[in-house]
Structures are given as structure tokens and as C-alpha cells.
């Protein structure tokens, strides 16, 4: 068993390019299962539509979402020129709902992504290192767990004041503990497998083991969990705006729109419910998609 001369091996490497696993890899099989799941596909399509329309809002030929009109207030759905009517200040609802998606989706996704980075890092560290480090990190998370998440978000936003940045910050803080706990538990589970012991026994460094052997096995479940948090984040962000702790008017945002249309509920209940419908559709799509992802990733072998 002696190593051959490098030149020979280089030649061999050139003749034999690394074979790409022909659709047998884990992610390929996940993709194949997802393609056979109509509910998840529909939800993903709706979400893509929402995100695209929010991103492309300025180029969609919509009315100005900030332009008020005292004479055209609370037009019902289907009014000429205002497909979804107008709000309590005469602004076009369709434009405001689509522009509102920008902030609402942003506020739903950003805190989850931030929490995923911070909480995931903490959780994987706690799970892999174990012992006292685990104890220290997880007990701190338990302190955050002592407060109901809505209450925590409200009190943090209340303490820091209204505004988009503060809402993002407080939502991130709210989501770090659950992400951390899920990451910790899956990492602890993976660490118990013999292949991690085998990797340790090979003398590889801790970071290498985490990168090669742990991350690939824990990212899936953590990502699935994070997807399900996006809907909660959207609802919480909307709730904070509704309470006046989130986005400030006249910024279009679904939660805030619900709040300001509250007075119109007796005049035009359908109109007043529209932002709620948007929140509902978005969060249920994220939830169903997360379920579908879980199902697709769960299957062993």
C-alpha cells in the first residue's frame, strides 16, 4: 500500500472525473418527492407570486399607495379603477396590499433568518460541545422561554419604541430560543451516532467534523422548523403593527392596515378583512410548505 507518484495520480484524476450521483443523492430524492406533492407545490407557487409581486410592485402599473382622496373613501370591491376598493383615506387597496406585502414579508423572513443564524449557531454549539457549554446556553434560552413569545415581542418593542428596526430586533430575539432549542436537540441526536465518533476517532478537528458530518444532517430539520416560524413572524409583526408598536403609518403593512381599517368594519366588512386574508394566505402557505418539506426530508433511504 504505497502512494504512487503524484504525476500518475493526476493523470488518473483527469481520466476519471468524479462521477455525479445520478439522481440518487439525498437532495435529489427530496426534490423528487416534493414534485409529487401538489399542496406544497401550490403553496410554493402562491408564495413565489406574492414575493414577486411585492418585489415588482413599482412596475406593475398600480395606483400610488400613498395617494389619499377624501371623496373616494371606502369604495367597495370591484369599483371602477379600484379593483379591491379604497381604504379609509381613499388609497387604492390593491396597491396597498401589494406594497404592504413588501414590508410584511420582509418582517416575516428577516427575523427568522437572523434567528436561524444566531440560534442555529448557539444550538449546534450547545449540542455538539455538550456538557457545561450546553448547560450555560440552554439555561439562558430557558429564561427567554419563561415569557410567552407574543408578550416578549410586545414588551421588547414597547421598551425600544415603535419602528421597523425595533420590530425586527424584538422578533429576532423572540425566535432565537426556539430555533436554538430545535438545533440543540437535533445536533445532540446526530452527535450520538457512531459516524460522529468514527470521525472523532480519525483525529479530525471539531470544526471539520461539524462541517462535514453534523451540518448536513441537522440543517434540514432546522430549516423546516424555521419555515414554519415565518408564518408566526408575519402574524407577530402584523400584531405589533396593529398595536401601534411596529411599522408607523402611512407605510403600507398588512397589520397596520388591519388596524386602521378597524373603524370601517361596520361600513365595509369585506374590505376591512382583506389585509387579514393576505396574512392568512401567506402564513398558511408557509405552514403547509414547511409540512411538505418535512415530509419530503423525513424519509430515510
Amino acid at each position: 500500500m504505497t502512494i504512487q507518484s503524484p504525476s500518475l495520480e493526476l493523470g488518473a484524476a483527469l481520466v476519471q472525473p468524479i462521477a455525479v450521483p445520478g439522481g440518487r443523492g439525498y437532495w435529489q430524492s427530496v426534490g423528487r418527492r416534493l414534485r409529487r406533492d401538489p399542496v406544497t407545490l401550490i403553496c410554493a407557487a402562491v408564495l413565489i407570486l406574492l414575493v414577486l409581486s411585492a418585489l415588482a410592485a413599482p412596475w406593475l402599473g398600480l395606483a400610488d399607495p400613498y395617494k389619499t382622496s377624501m371623496i373616494r373613501r371606502l369604495y367597495p370591491l370591484g369599483s371602477p379603477g379600484h379593483l379591491l376598493g379604497t381604504d379609509e383615506l381613499g388609497r387604492d387597496m390593491l396597491a396597498r396590499l401589494i406594497y404592504g406585502g413588501r414590508l410584511s414579508l420582509f418582517m416575516g423572513v428577516t427575523p427568522v433568518v437572523c434567528a436561524l443564524l444566531i440560534g442555529g449557531l448557539l444550538g449546534i454549539t450547545a449540542g455538539f460541545v455538550g456538557g457545561r457549554v450546553n448547560m450555560a446556553i440552554m439555561r439562558v434560552m430557558d429564561v427567554f422561554y419563561a415569557f410567552p413569545s407574543v408578550l416578549l415581542a410586545i414588551s421588547l418593542s414597547g421598551a425600544m419604541g415603535a419602528g421597523t428596526e425595533n420590530t425586527l430586533l424584538s422578533l429576532t430575539l423572540v425566535f432565537i430560543p426556539p430555533v436554538c432549542r430545535v438545533s440543540e436537540s437535533v445536533t445532540t441526536q446526530v452527535r450520538g451516532f457512531d459516524f460522529v465518533d468514527a470521525a472523532r476517532a480519525s483525529g479530525a478537528g471539531m470544526l471539520t467534523i461539524v462541517r462535514v458530518h453534523v451540518l448536513g444532517n441537522v440543517l434540514g430539520p432546522i430549516l423546516v422548523y424555521a419555515t414554519s416560524l415565518i408564518s408566526v413572524a408575519i402574524i407577530l409583526a402584523a400584531g405589533l403593527s396593529f398595536l401601534g408598536l411596529g411599522v408607523k403609518p402611512p407605510e403600507p403593512e398588512w397589520g397596520l392596515m388591519l388596524n386602521t381599517l378597524r373603524q370601517a368594519i361596520y361600513v365595509n366588512p369585506v374590505l376591512a378583512a382583506l389585509p387579514g386574508v393576505m396574512i392568512f394566505i401567506t402564513s398558511i402557505c408557509f405552514n403547509l410548505m414547511s409540512d411538505g418539506l418535512r415530509a419530503a426530508m423525513d424519509v430515510k433511504a
Binding site: 504512487q4 488518473a12 468524479i18 465518533d197 479530525a204 444532517n217
Partner: peptide, 30 residues
């Protein structure tokens, strides 16, 4: 349980030699 389900056999076998600094081509040969 002692094989990482996300890695191919070649990746599993090359892990330790690579962690000890064996160049990729030599690891593949090994």
C-alpha cells in the same frame, strides 16, 4: 449508524485522510 447517510462511500472514506492533509487526488486513489 456508523456511516454518515449524507455522504457517498468515497466521501466517507476520504474524510480521515483529507483531515490529515492528504491531497484530494491522493485521497481519491486511496
Amino acid at each position: 449508524a456508523s456511516l454518515n447517510p449524507r455522504l457517498t462511500i468515497a466521501e466517507t472514506l476520504a474524510f480521515a485522510p483529507k483531515a490529515h492533509g492528504l491531497p484530494a487526488a491522493e485521497a481519491r486513489e486511496r
